[in-house]
Design a binder for these strands. Structure first.
Lengths: 135, 135
DNA sequence: TATTGTTATACTCTATAACTATA
DNA sequence: TATAGTTATAGAGTATAACAATA
């Protein structure tokens, strides 16, 4: 294949995804689940629509992932008192505990990637990727 | 979200994919289909297993995509004379014609990305991405 | 025995549309 | 009317397993 940027990025993403899943081990937590847990932990009480917007996940899709997270006892929906259409989202104590462990696993995963790039390479890569998303 | 490499790459890939699909316009050709057409055009007579390997597409998945490409009259399977288990793959004249148009559209797509990075930035990005796939 | 292509199944993710209950 | 969450559906991609034909 020619050196198309889209192709190179897709192949890299597959490699990173596979390392991520190995890092998560028996937890079986996928990238989308991890990002949702992280956003809720940093912004307790967030509404589903806000999580959808900030992560670029369709709100219909978010419903299903939140169902899984609730069934696993990691997050919970609380009816908002101010706007009864919406749900405020929180982690359970078990969710907080698991997220701390996931953060540790993700840090190791990220360290493996940084070992391949070097710290300057990592910064450069993030800078170049951010340019692709401009305008 | 923190500046995780996997997250940044995923977001960039989504942006690139959307520009790619806009570039393909009414042809509706997806990245996987384009990559398959390209590989066949450059290596006429290739077997399905070789296409699977070189593009990292599951052979069961390739069967379905090739069915689509054959139904659209873009590619054809020819029974191999040397190994009757396998199919030799070729583009039809219509496939060759469409691919030439797709190459033009993809070149414009790529030029838009390069405009955001600069040529040195593009080379740097490809180099950094290739490091992520090592070992 | 192993490989090529095929069929089938299950799951994840994206994209839409339509519905309900609230505002 | 518009918005928040939900349900449902269809398509794309990934991952497996099993099968027939052939090597």
């Amino acid at each position: 294949m020619p050196t198309l940027l889209g192709y190179a990025i897709r192949r890299s993403q597959i490699a990173i995804f596979q390392d991520f899943m190995r890092s998560m081990g028996a937890t079986g937590i996928r990238p989308a689940q991890y990002s949702i847990l992280t956003v809720i932990a940093r912004n307790p009480g967030l509404k589903q629509a806000q999580v959808s917007d900030s992560l670029g996940i369709e709100r219909a899709r978010l419903v299903l992932v939140l169902n899984e997270l609730e069934e696993r006892g990691l997050a919970r929906r609380v009816l908002s008192t101010t706007d009864r259409r919406s749900h405020a989202l929180f982690l359970t104590p078990e969710g907080e505990r698991l997220l701390a462990e996931l953060d540790h696993r993700v840090a190791e995963h990220e360290a493996r990637l940084i070992a391949k790039l070097g710290q300057p390479g990592r910064r450069q890569l993030l800078e170049l990727l951010s340019r692709l998303q401009d305008d």
